[in-house]
Amino acid sequence: MRRKKKTKMEEEEIKKSWNTYGEQLQTGKGLELSLVEEVKVMKAQMALTQLKWRRGIEAALFFVCFALLVNFIAVHFPTWYFMTAAGVLAVFSLIGLIGCIVEMALISQLDYATPVTVFQSQLQKLKAFDLQLLRLVFLSIPFYFAYIIIGFQSFLGVDIYANGTTAWLISNGVISLALIPFSIWLNRKLSYQAEINWVRSLVVENGGKQIQSALTFLGEIEDFAGEKA
């Protein structure tokens, strides 16, 4: 009982010191709106602006890919395998493009007045968006033959589909089908908390330090908020 009382007193003493410190700060230098005006100049350097720029560049790249693929379809109409190959990859580019635009809109809507763990979690997920792009790449693995067809035609002027033997075409078809379950499995495993070591390494290797740091902090936030408890 006496010990509890002593602890309580110590606690009050600590809080008293803190309050005195707070009072000193409260009576200190006043805040002026000119601070805001000055900071506006530094706006370009702010993290969110940088993130928005990054998404903007990615969106532009996806748009260029999409436009080139649509052009490829138009040029090679009505050859069905060229149109199918370019069509599939155009769909992936379009998904990437829409994803980037949505992310840019989400960044613009971020409000610092949101509760701390929610805001920080949103921010880290936005930073780890490249992980979603990586998932998109992995989902396109079974369609690797589309890249081969378009690549050969665009860069070497060779119609690989027309020149390939039937056995070769069938074997590629079989490999593509076999890759579907692998691609789906990998897509499911690629998460913010990838448990398999090589999958996690894959995420980190492809996303760099920013993703690694964002993923670690997301884990910390979840631990803090007690979701893992």
């Binding site: 805040l31 709106l33 601070l35 805001v36 000055e38 900071v39 506006k40 530094m42 702010m46 610092y112």
Partner: peptide
């Protein structure tokens, strides 16, 4: 302090 002021504004 500047950044907090800006975001609050």
């Amino acid at each position: 302090v500047q950044e907090i002021t800006l975001q609050a504004w």
